[in-house]
Design a protein around this nucleic acid. Sequence first.
DNA 1: TATCCTTTAGTTGGATCCATTTTCGCTGAG
DNA 2: CTCAGCGAAAATGGATCCAACTAAAGGATA
Lengths: 226, 226
Amino acid sequence: MSNSGKSVVGQLRRLISEGELLPGQRLGEVAIAEQLGVSRTPVRLAFRTLEQEGLLQRAGKRGFQVREFSDADVHCAVEVRGVLEGLAARRLAEQGLSPELHARLAHWIQKGRELLAKGFLVEDDVADWGELNLGFHGTIVDSAGSDVVGDAIARNNHLPFAAADSIILDKACLDREYRKLQLAQMQHELILQALRDGEGARAEMLMREHALIGLRYAEVLEGGGR
Amino acid sequence: MSNSGKSVVGQLRRLISEGELLPGQRLGEVAIAEQLGVSRTPVRLAFRTLEQEGLLQRAGKRGFQVREFSDADVHCAVEVRGVLEGLAARRLAEQGLSPELHARLAHWIQKGRELLAKGFLVEDDVADWGELNLGFHGTIVDSAGSDVVGDAIARNNHLPFAAADSIILDKACLDREYRKLQLAQMQHELILQALRDGEGARAEMLMREHALIGLRYAEVLEGGGR
DNA sequence: TATCCTTTAGTTGGATCCATTTTCGCTGAG
DNA sequence: CTCAGCGAAAATGGATCCAACTAAAGGATA
């Protein structure tokens, strides 16, 4: 079977985010089980996990259905990530940035500078930006002093449109994406500045605004990008 | 069986929050299954749910263990609730408070006034306050325009010390609790004022500060009350 | 003809069974 | 005496079986 490698949860997540399973669609355990070539047991386990993640919701008294997200939901999910990452940034600024942490963040910022230095984007840059963006954000969140914040962000990121690396919406329009990443890079640098100088409130607000980058563009692009 | 009524998830949650299952303790499926008098299947489902809720974490490659929470975790969890409820309050203020919503919130505030009017607390008041507090907070969160915020808060509230109704720590010391609830009531009234007048930033900040009530007391009380 | 009741089919929750993996303990050798 | 290797037992993941419940469909009666 081709599914041995990937978990049922991951497969279902992919099927949902790729639109194979439509929002509102009712999911039967047996149907999914035979579609994935496994027994009902792992499917039942996966349904519970995905329910907690927010991708599925109970359909009445019987079974689950793919949750559908409105524009307001997307907006809220991005704002939720913003306030949570803002909280992490503020805590980090308040507790002081160690030299090691500063170096780690500066490393990712340097990566961003190099990526944008040539003045335009190529397709491969998208993955590289995703990596450094994940590194920058992850470093801040993991340093907030408790896993609780990171867990809350991770749970929120299970909503496919809410994750930080969903900034890149449109590989076709690399010109616009370049300007977007320029702005994001600038915000990263300002955030590090605020963190270094212990400016908690500024770091928090910068991080919250930073989260909205993808959203504002998504709104302009007529609700694109899921 | 005495467990037919309550779900396995609920029973495990109770066992954990009551200290029957100690933090760091390894949980075997069979052990829990026969302790609860059920088969392994519902236990396996419950473990996945509780893992997502953050009460359990994977113990190496095999099985789960009760997650242990540091003081920093407690602090962070309360702050997370604060920023999320603050987000809900700000959104509500920005979108404007309908007359119906204002009436609902004023109703809970009136309940609070009546409860505190007599100048002291009796034991039964604790449950009443929990109900009105839940009503007030729930009304705001449910009106934020998207279930995403409420879901994030609900997930965070699965951490037993993070829920809004965990303000009441000490039934023995009703005098101190009375002063605490007086403060909380005042904050509720200020929050409604800010919501009514469309003061988004003020509503958010008041809500964030409001979340810290239990925490500040808990710190003074030497980490008591879970 | 419409509504209510009954029956039936399908779906979900719980229990048990089988296979795989991991860990612990025992034994033997250096 | 210690460490490594092997074996056994236990625990977990997956599959299947059984029971209970829900929902839908069909028939009967007003």
